[in-house]
């Protein structure tokens, strides 16, 4: 029924070179560029989509994976509605670092209830033949860390990219539903992101 568009901020985190920028570009412009520069700091693109008959503007924030860009990217974690933890299936170290990325996000985004925050895990570059991370291994990590949905994607051949973002949106909307129930129904929703205003420590 409702046609109101809401803006959802989704952030891509993960080691440098796992393909975060490529995933974003594939999803928004349906293009793949093998010669992208390293991302410096953060970048973002907007995409309008309809999920379960709700109009949503997805704002996808792509971040720099390299450690030296840390101070540039972390201020932009705040206000995220969903975090896409990304690794590359041909780079085991990037998989091992997922936990660190999650910690970094929770710390800088100032997430109030980390266990309820919607994370989605993406194993990118499934088009590559020499895998270092098996699907089972990845699924197990997701299971153990909070039952996160896991998608194996390829920005190069567009495998699962759209599906993953749609899932992210569903997660956010579902999380919102739960919050909305706590509020009287005919009020204006001003506090979609109350956590950013919450005091830390």
């Amino acid at each position: 029924m409702t046609t109101k568009t809401s803006l959802l901020k989704v952030i891509l985190l993960g080691d440098g070179g796992v393909g975060k920028s490529s995933i974003m570009n594939r999803y928004v412009t349906n293009k793949f560029d093998a010669h992208l520069f390293h991302t410096i700091g953060v970048e973002f693109l907007n995409k309008d989509l309809e999920v379960d008959s709700r109009q949503v503007t997805l704002q996808i924030w792509d971040t720099a994976g390299q450690e030296r860009f840390r101070s540039l990217r972390t201020p932009f974690y705040r206000g995220s509605d969903c975090c896409l933890l990304t690794f590359s299936v041909d780079d085991h170290q990037s998989f091992l670092n997922l936990g660190n990325w999650k910690k970094e996000f929770i710390y800088y985004a100032d997430v109030k209830e980390p266990e309820k925050f919607p994370f989605v895990v993406l194993g990118n570059k499934v088009d590559v033949t020499e895998r270092q991370v098996s699907t089972e291994e990845a699924r197990q990590w997701c299971q153990e860390n909070g039952d996160y949905p896991y998608y194996e994607t390829s920005a190069k051949d567009a495998t699962n990219v759209a599906v993953a973002f749609e899932e992210a949106v569903r997660r956010v909307l579902a999380a919102e539903e739960r919050t909305v129930h706590l509020i009287p129904t005919d009020t204006v929703k001003l506090h979609r992101k109350p956590r950013s205003a919450a005091a830390c420590c």
Binding site: S21, M24, N25, V28, T39, G41, V42, E43, F44, L45, D62, L72, F76
Partner: peptide, 10 residues
């Protein structure tokens, strides 16, 4: 576009 968005935000 994406880089400009990001640079603007920075």
């Amino acid at each position: 576009l994406a880089s400009l968005n990001g640079l603007e935000a920075h």
